[in-house]
Design a protein around this nucleic acid. Sequence first.
DNA 1: TTGAAAGCGCTAACAC
DNA 2: GTGTTAGCGCTTTCAA
Lengths: 352, 352
Amino acid sequence: MRKEPRMATLYDVAALAGVSPKTVSRVLNESHLVAETTRKRVLDAISKLDYHPNAIAASLKRKFSNTVGFVVPYGSDFVFQDLNMMEQLHGVHDALTQEGYNVVVSAPLNKKDALHEAIRLAKRRNVDGIILYPSSGIDRIIAEFTYKGLPYVTLGMGFKDQRWNFVEVDMAEGAYLATKYLIASGHRYIGLITRPTGFFNYPENDSYYAGYNAALVELGITLRPEFIREGNFTFESGYREFRYLKEKYPEITAFLCASDPMAYGAIQAMKDMQLKWLEDVEIVAGDNLPLTQKIFPFLSSISNPSYEQGRQAGKMIIALLRGQKEMPGIVLKAEFIPRRGRPFPISPSSNL
Amino acid sequence: MRKEPRMATLYDVAALAGVSPKTVSRVLNESHLVAETTRKRVLDAISKLDYHPNAIAASLKRKFSNTVGFVVPYGSDFVFQDLNMMEQLHGVHDALTQEGYNVVVSAPLNKKDALHEAIRLAKRRNVDGIILYPSSGIDRIIAEFTYKGLPYVTLGMGFKDQRWNFVEVDMAEGAYLATKYLIASGHRYIGLITRPTGFFNYPENDSYYAGYNAALVELGITLRPEFIREGNFTFESGYREFRYLKEKYPEITAFLCASDPMAYGAIQAMKDMQLKWLEDVEIVAGDNLPLTQKIFPFLSSISNPSYEQGRQAGKMIIALLRGQKEMPGIVLKAEFIPRRGRPFPISPSSNL
DNA sequence: TTGAAAGCGCTAACAC
DNA sequence: GTGTTAGCGCTTTCAA
């Protein structure tokens, strides 16, 4: 069916160099065990034939493919437009590329397929290990991977009390500082547009909520559960929840958003409601994406170390592939970057 | 070194089902050639043993890996933060996933490595084919791939007069319409912040310029070459070139930007220069990204069909893998989406 | 330091 | 419809 380019094999090289296949293999993999003159001859033959070792054949024998899967259980529409996820992928890519691993990216068309996809890739040996985004059902996958001895790392905890093979970002510190900052700025009623319940399978552990609550408690402000709304990280949900909260509870003057796009949406809602930045409302973003810093330079933000999370996950999966049985989970801390100092660019005419 | 999970092989299945290996293989690949009862027995054995075919072994025999490489010759810092490139990847991913191919993403640490990386992946059989982003030096790669019969598709033309295996976006129509629109709105001096010369190896073919120029000619406006500046797609370059043009040629009242991030930068520069939207200056963006539509809903834009470009490239590489010798290049057309209708949200206080 | 032979797990020829 | 055999291109004993 498909044209097969004839490519030189290790045997061709051996024949041309007048040595055995094994010697060629040695030159390729452990050339220090080969006499310098033989080595030279082999290398000559290799370049003369434009020989490239067949990675598939090596994989079959060695039993690993030098490839890691990055599997995200959300529609690809969502994934490739999510700058945080892309930053995680970025970190994963860099860590793996540096060590010579390839990255297969998969965002199966529907969520349920993702778990099968992870299993499929791993069990069919397309990949040596998987970096997985947590979502409901992931605990089953983890159990299965563990049982079968298949290496995996989760980007965030996959279930309550997971102790191994994850890289989590603890937002509590950032949310705590952000909330204190808002209170110190005079706000008394603070809305929280947080991550979706069940997103990570253990809503009670939402570190945004934890930090937010801790600051309120410390400063003697009563928690108002009705001020907390769930978004799904998107612009639209930020817009919607901002409007909902501000219309229902006009006393709220500050909003903590768990993602940058939700902050964008909140800002747009603010404009549409003819509210003025700082005068009527203050917003804190949740990711501190480079793009956000450029477009909204006055926006304070919790920082979300997505790149570092991905990079650590990449390093962790490599350690597992190299024989570590399991790796203790890593928890990265979010910071808070205050930027209020100049008024937010907004005019009344923007709301026409 | 690394723990090897013992997994069932096709022989185990054959033994348990009491049939020959070939029969199992038949059930897996062409099950219609197998008696229903035997098939049942084999399937039973498969599920009993939790058997998953080893893709590596199949690849070795079949001579293809069912994997396609997506190689971008820019620093990964650049790639994963570029929403257009991610949309292209998105399209590639969707097209390939749908047909059961895996996608390996690689953005080698430095530009020069990218070409080697493409060759390495293809020649070592990690991938069956490559989707390549054009950059200087790509013509050599194309020549080599062609010579060796290795399938490739380029996202945009890799060199002047390339006729096969590319998916290009022709911006001329969009730029033409955008320019006419600006002229019709009363602008007479229009700046163009275009793509970097040499980005695609044949600067004389810049379709932004072509469309811009065509509109000027048609409406009898003299082309002022000094009104044309090159950016590199980024916020920073948009900011810089806007300032440069507006400070040097204050008569310019409209700016056409070849990317959305450059339009963001231009908008920021406009604010910093205390200029007013529409009153002093009008800007047209170059990508029409979903995010831009949300953040700057009043911003007219040329549309850049990045997703579709990626999807077509995915379909094209599949056709090549399936035996097509070469595929005629595809040219997608950019449109223009006018959105001016409401003033741009900007106030004097934003420039403090 | 080098080589011969076996085999990774699958599929393609070619029988039966 | 089904089974036997021989590889795919490497690496890995083991021996020389």
